[in-house]
Simulated scan of single mutants.
Amino acid sequence: MHVKRVYRPTVREALAEVRAQLGPDALVLSTELVPAPGWRGWLGTRVVRLTAAAERPEPLVETPPSTPIETPDLSAPRTPVTSRRHRSPDDSARAGVTARLVAAGLPASLAEAVTARLTDAECRGGSDRALRRALSAELEPLSGAPADYERCEIFVGPPGVGKTTTIAKIAAQERVRHRRALNLVSADGFRAGAIEQLRSYAEVLAVPFRAARSAEELQAALTHARNPILVDTPGRSAADGEATRMFEVLCQRRHVRTHLVLAADTSAPVARRVFDRYAPLAPARVVITKLDECESVTPLLSVVREQGLPVSYLTTGQRIPDDLWRATPASLAAALLREPATEDYSCH
């Protein structure tokens, strides 16, 4: 029995979400009116929490009003807040907003920076729009959403983080929304079924596909592609003997952008080891996947901040072409505030 909880503004929306995820035969167990998760709760917002079940051998999953993402630890040295905005020591409203943001899960440095961007009137009023605007501005350095594709977009990372599915989502969104066919290349001949999985996506999307089981086949696939190429790589480090020649072919090409793909629940120590392992490939962007399975993305974003790399895409769930957004300041803010992303946040 698979049990799922969803949080939505109304019962109708909660029922629609449950049926979309569990099917029309889902059994409603309970409905409750509860404070909204995150910072919206302390502003007095209340939502419907609906618990439902369906026959499916999966564990309990909670779905808050949007992507269950916590806040990044932006504790790196930064310009003091007082140098960007004069603050009165007696400004209790401003101090109260900062304290409430910290209580809602934001690190003190980020909470202070966000509050510093608000006017005194906005602090007293607690405007949702003002908070989103201020948070978006603070998250801008983490935004690395690409304006267009390089000749070759390479996706690297440990096994099981969602590289293949991410590539399929990007290609599907481009095909559906812009009628543009991107070339898909699978160089992951080490994982059983990896090539067949990406090939099946390419067939459904009617886009060019090449399988590369050797360095020579990879070189040929990259040379003959006419459109931008999305390359799925094996979940092995650049130092792995089996994959070394593959990565050498990729690193020697021009107009290449490498995305390091990491699951949102990756711990800080593991993330640092992954960055070290893939450092020879010189990743220029980070893709954060499986946000819907993450209790807190703070540890991972702290390491991303340390590495000085921007985030290119955010993903949640397995739906294609959905569940993928460009990591714009607005989409990052929406995720951190537990608000649903909109079409404005999706790819290109």
Rank of each mutant, 00 (worst) to 15 (best):
R285K: 14
W42C: 05
E58S: 15
R272F: 08
R85H: 11
Q219L: 08
V156R: 02
D344G: 12
L230P: 14
R49V: 11
S92E: 02
P80W: 10
L43M: 11
A268T: 06
R85G: 00
L15R: 15
P141Y: 05
A95R: 12
C347K: 01
A130C: 07
V304W: 02
L60Q: 06
A187N: 05
L309R: 11
A187C: 05
G44E: 09
D148W: 10
P321Y: 05
A279R: 05
T98I: 06
W42A: 07
E306P: 01
H86M: 03
A52F: 01
T166A: 07
R245V: 05
R338Y: 08
S186W: 00
M1D: 07
R129H: 13
V102F: 01
A20D: 08
R191A: 10
T328W: 04
A36Y: 01
Y201T: 13
A147V: 00
V61W: 14
E293R: 00
C152Y: 08
L336A: 15
G189A: 12
G38A: 09
V97G: 02
K290Y: 06
R199D: 04
T165C: 10
A282V: 09
R226N: 10
V61G: 03
R8K: 12
V102N: 03
D91F: 11
A187E: 00
S186I: 10
E248C: 11
D148M: 08
P57I: 02
R124M: 05
Y313P: 04
D232F: 06
A26T: 15
E203Q: 15
P280F: 08
L337G: 13
R12H: 08
L135C: 14
S136L: 03
I320K: 00
V11T: 07
P72G: 15
W42F: 14
R132L: 15
T79K: 07
T115C: 07
R273S: 13
S143P: 03
E248H: 14
T298N: 01
V231Q: 01
T45M: 02
I170L: 15
S312G: 12
L250C: 07
D344I: 07
C152F: 10
E217C: 12
L300E: 14
R285M: 14
L142I: 06
V176P: 04
A211H: 04
I170D: 12
P280N: 02
R273H: 12
L15V: 09
A341R: 11
P35L: 08
E295N: 01
S186P: 11
L205G: 02
R180W: 10
Y149S: 01
P299H: 13
G96P: 01
L337W: 06
A268R: 05
L184F: 03
